[in-house]
Structure formats: structure tokens, C-alpha cells
């Protein structure tokens, strides 16, 4: 089987990566799944891969593990469970999912899982919603953003948050303007937007209504295209050369496994050319905080 985008053979799981489950440390904390290569360079950029509303954190780590092994990069897949984090996609509405991820990342830094100043962030479906909003809020933390198959987006426009960056009506202080404050830096980040070519059919999990349909379109492909256009326009208005790319994954619908196995998504999220040149400076990551997957 070959990758549809790069025509490279699809990686298969190897002995050089281990899948681990890390339980949540406290009520408001996040559990996560980790794909840990046996040797990780001290400057290896971790990938934080955020699941969709099916809460497939394990699947995120599992399907990205072969690429992680090949590159010597850890994959961190946080789990926003359905009970505690029903609206994690919106990051700051309801419980603060951003703070939970920051706390998790601090704990994983303590455990020696990552050491860099930034991380790569990817998200699929609901996780893509979370990821682009988190990156707008904390652009300095995200080296590269991959937004895959989001149902809808926060646009860099004057619609009220979470559809746009304006304050919600009746609120003098709101999150839209806070995300807007970071746009200058956000727009300078490399951003990849990916969506399956066949993911153009509305389903019950896609938010609809006259306003959002008028702003974003009716299906994920249209919405991705419009968001990319809006991001490019916002960058141009600031004199920034945008680094946003759009990839339509052929023969893929709304299925993460399909996108990885047939759409080349793993190569987009973890590009093969980014093998760390100094792999010899590797460290063995062993921690009592982690439990091998059973």
C-alpha cells in the first residue's frame, strides 16, 4: 500500500515506538496517550495531536506512531473526555480546555517528554477546531499548525466569537478580541489545512444555521477553503506573507484512519524531511508517570 500524496510506502508500527497511556493527575487534568520513540533527540519537536468528538486520543497516537518512530519525535494525544470536556473544541467557552492542555504540557515537560520552547499542533475534526483556536490564543507556543477536517472555524473577521473575533453582543470583554490580539503572530505561523475530498456532505455533527452557512459554507470542504481564503486575506491586510496551505486528501471522507492511510495525513502532520539531524544526542525517556498501554 502506498501513500496517495507522497507515493511513499505507508509506515508500519515498529519496535522503536511505544504507546503509553498517562492517566489524569487530578479532577480537572487531562489524561493522554503518548507515542514515544525509543530515542528522542533533546531538541525533538513534539507533536500534540488532538482528537475529534469521538475522543479517539489513542487512535491519534497509534496512527501517528510509525511516523513518530521514523522521525524520533514524541506524539502527545491529550484526552478531553466527554463527561468533563463537552465543549473542549471551543477552548475557552465553558471549562478552560486551554489551561488543561497547558498544565498537561508542563507535567510532560517535567517528565522529560519534551524540552523545546514550542510544539507542533494538529487536530482532527473537533480537535481541529480546538487546535486553530488554541493557536490563535497562544501563537508563540505553536511552531506549526495542522487543521484537519474541522467542522467549522473561528474566522479572522468581525463576526462574534466563536465564529469570528469580535466580542459577543452584550459583553464588554470577551474572548474574540483576545484571540484577535494574537493574530499578527498567528498569521506568521505555517498553517496546513487538510480535508478529505469526499468530506463535502453535511452530517448531523456539522453545525448549521443561516449565519454560519452564509459565513463559512455548508460542508467541510467549502468551510476549509473559505477559512484559508480569509486567513490569506487577513495576512495580506497586515503585510504578512501567509504560510497557509490547503490540501484536499483524495478518496477520503470524514475518517481519521482513512486520512492517515490513504490521504497522506501523517506525512502532512509529521513531514519526513524533518528528521532531526542530531539524533545521536538522544535521551531515553523513562518515567514512573507513564504506564505502558495494556
Amino acid at each position: 500500500m502506498r501513500n496517495a500524496i507522497s507515493n511513499r510506502p505507508i509506515s508500519t508500527p515498529s519496535e522503536s515506538v511505544t504507546l503509553l497511556h498517562r492517566p489524569a493527575k487530578g479532577k480537572a487534568a487531562l489524561a493522554c496517550w503518548l507515542a514515544m520513540p525509543s530515542n528522542v533527540a533533546s531538541d525533538a519537536q513534539p507533536l500534540v495531536a488532538v482528537h475529534g468528538i469521538q475522543r479517539g486520543a489513542k487512535q491519534q497516537a497509534e496512527l501517528l506512531a510509525p511516523q513518530a518512530a521514523a522521525l524520533g519525535r514524541p506524539v502527545i494525544a491529550p484526552l478531553f473526555d466527554k463527561h468533563r470536556w463537552p465543549r473542549y473544541q471551543q477552548v475557552v467557552l465553558g471549562k478552560r480546555a486551554d489551561l488543561a492542555l497547558l498544565e498537561l504540557m508542563t507535567e510532560l515537560r517535567l517528565a522529560g517528554i519534551w524540552r523545546t520552547q514550542t510544539f507542533d499542533l494538529s487536530g482532527y475534526s473537533g480537535g481541529a477546531q480546538f487546535s486553530h483556536r488554541f493557536a490563535m490564543l497562544y501563537p508563540q507556543l505553536v511552531r506549526r499548525l495542522t487543521v484537519s477536517s474541522a467542522g467549522w472555524y473561528t474566522f479572522p473577521d468581525a463576526a462574534a466569537f466563536p465564529y469570528g473575533l469580535a466580542a459577543r453582543p452584550g459583553r464588554t470583554e470577551d474572548w474574540g478580541p483576545r484571540l484577535a490580539a494574537g493574530m499578527e503572530e498567528f498569521l506568521q505561523r505555517p498553517i496546513q489545512v487538510c480535508v478529505g475530498a469526499e468530506d463535502c456532505v453535511s452530517d448531523p455533527n456539522t453545525r448549521h444555521g443561516p449565519e454560519i452557512d452564509r459565513q463559512q459554507g455548508k460542508d467541510r470542504v467549502t468551510r476549509a477553503e473559505r477559512w484559508v481564503a480569509a486567513i490569506r486575506q487577513a495576512a495580506a491586510a497586515r503585510g504578512i506573507s501567509p504560510q497557509v496551505t490547503m490540501t484536499i486528501m483524495p478518496d477520503c471522507g470524514h475518517d481519521f484512519r482513512d486520512c492517515i492511510q490513504h490521504g497522506g495525513l501523517a506525512d502532512l502532520i509529521l513531514p519526513p524531511e524533518e528528521v532531526s539531524p542530531d539524533r545521536p544526542r538522544s535521551q531515553h525517556w523513562e518515567s514512573a508517570l507513564l504506564q505502558p498501554a495494556g
Binding site: D157, G164, G176, E211, Q233, A234, A237
Partner: peptide, 13 residues
Amino acid sequence: DHAVAVSDVGVAA
């Protein structure tokens, strides 16, 4: 002085 009002860019709903 590089603030751009959000209403100046993008597509308003």
C-alpha cells in the same frame, strides 16, 4: 502601530 481592526479584514457573517 500595526493593529488591524477585525472589521477591516475577512468576511463578516
